[in-house]
Every structure is written in C-alpha cells, then in structure tokens.
Nucleic acid binder design. Structure first.
Lengths: 151, 151
DNA sequence: ACAGTGTGGTTCGAATTTGAACAACCGAGT
DNA sequence: ACTCGGTTGTTCAAATTCGAACCACACTGT
C-alpha cells in the first residue's frame, strides 16, 4: 500500500473552500427560495430548465440528467409541482413509455415572480463577491470539472 | 418593481459551473466513500473533524457549526457512528448539558484506511483537473464566499 | 438567592432522497 | 415476425434531513 499524495496547503484550501462555499450557498439559496417563493431549490431548477426548453417541456429522463438527480427523485418532485399546478405531464406521442414534464402558465408565472429574488441572492452570495477575472477562472475551471464527470 | 440585473454570459457560466461541479463532485465522493469505506460523506467529515481536533473530541454544537449542518442532523449521524463504535459520547465536565463527540480508536483506524481512497477521488475529480493558478483563485475566491456567509 | 433570558442536545413528525425492483415497451439483428 | 438486451417512468422501503418543540441547565443582573 503506497502512501498517497496528500493535499498540500493550497490544495487543501481550494478543497475546503469548494466544500464550504457549496454548502453555504446552497443553504442560503434554499432558504431564500422557500421564504419568497415557496419552492425548494430542486423545484426551482426544474421550472428553470423547463422554461428554457423549447415548448416548455422535457422528457423525464432527460430532465433528470440535466438536474443531476435520480429518476425516482424527479418523479417525486414533478408530482409535487403537478399538485400545485405548476407543471403537468404529457404522454409522449412517439413512445408510449415516455412522459414529458410541461411547464404550465402558472408555473411560468411563478417563475417570473421568483426569479428576481433568486438572482439577487446568487449575486450577493457568489457572483458579486468575485471580480471578472475570478469569475472567468471559476467558469472555466469548474466547467471542466463538471464536464469530466459526465459519462 | 425594478428590473433586476440578470447574469451575463460569464456570470451564468460561473454559476452553472459552480452548481454542476458541486453536485457531480459530491455525488462521486458519496459513492466512492460508500463503496470503499461504508461511510456517507457527512459521516466521513465528522470523523475527519474529530481526528483533527485536540483529544479527538468536539462539542456537539461546535461540531455542527463546522460541518455546516443542523444540530438534529448531527445528533442522528453521531448516533449512527456510535452504533458502529467509531465515535462515542462523553459528558462535558464543566457543563452538564454539554456532550463531546469523541473519536474512538476504531474510528481513527477506519479513517486511516478510508483516507487514501478519498484523497485520490478528490484529486481526480477536482484538484488534479486544475493548475496551480486556478487552485489559488479557487481557494481565495471560494474562501471569501464561504467566509461572508458565516454569521 | 432569584427571576429572566439564553444555550445545549435530543426528540418528534414531515418532507425528501436514493437505489433496487418492477412492468411495459422500443429496436436492432436475425 | 421474433427474440433479447436496453429504456422508460413509477413504486417501494429505507435512510436521511430539517425545523420546531422541548427539557434541563447556565448565566447575568438585581
């Protein structure tokens, strides 16, 4: 059993920063969305992805992959959103097994009211804390990290 | 209702990268720890923090803050670790209400066997993907982000 | 000494998450 | 046309998470 390469001071700082920032930002966002829009972050993300998709609809499996969540988890959350009338399901015409999650007008409307507060929080917790140079590095570096884990 | 400042392309890329990288790295880590050591990431973090603390023990509330988790969540996880003999509780001598979580020898041993695999995964998913310059920016920037949310 | 406020940890119920199991279906190759 | 492997979405049980309620105690000021 060979001794592994431990993290040096800089690497440790990067790792801890990554963990702590991730936790704290997520936590703050969760709270803000719950308070101002009555949505959990996963739910908000579902609405956003649907709103960006052509026709406001995406297949369940495809959506689960984009959200980086399990299929069963998505089934649950879409169920919640459906009960509130923010999303509805539509059978896929070309594949009997397939199901589209579709953003309703109410969902689009709620998203419109929720988005400003959300963006403001994203700014004050992360974006506006950094300068352009740092944002560029973050975008490139973390983009690469994410990309490598898609497979 | 004034129009909020939306995110421009760079800001959006940084934000999405942050979210995706956070999710994917966390997910990968969780899986690796579960497979190789039978620990969840929160559990592993508890052991690490205890191992780094003088005497291998920390007060529950203090530990919850460091882990960025709720007190009740910590009570649960320490309970799990205690059942497995990796941690035990010790009453605080100076405050009857107080409880120390204490790392046992078994806990320290498991940590020793689990750490190499964990570090390897952290490297291949995040650290080794970036160069020194990027690590420095990440450490500084995310460190600042985390710091601002402590209050 | 005592009241009033705050703190430390646990308990409780409700919400969420995950993976495995499942049933139904698609599609390529023969 | 038919079979076999892979997909699709849901269901299920088990594990985890959070916040609110709670109890016992600490601490400050009078």
């Amino acid at each position: 059993m060979k001794e592994p390469r431990w993290l040096d001071e800089l690497e440790m700082a990067a790792w801890q920063g990554f963990l702590e920032a991730g936790n704290r930002v997520t936590r703050r966002l969760e709270q803000q969305l719950k308070d101002e829009a009555g949505l959990s972050h996963p739910q908000y993300e579902i609405l956003v992805h649907l709103a960006e998709a052509p026709g406001g609809e995406i297949r369940m499996t495809e959506l689960a992959e984009r959200l980086i969540t399990s299929k069963s988890g998505l089934t649950y959350q879409v169920g919640q959103l459906e009960r509130r009338g923010l999303v509805r399901r539509r059978a896929c015409p070309t594949d009997v097994r397939g199901v589209f999650a579709v953003l309703t007008e109410e969902g689009r409307e709620l998203l419109r009211t929720a988005a400003p507060g959300h963006v403001a929080t994203v700014r004050e917790t992360l974006i506006d804390v950094l300068d352009r140079e740092e944002l560029a590095v973050l975008a490139r570096a973390l983009g690469e990290v994410g990309r490598r884990l898609r497979d």
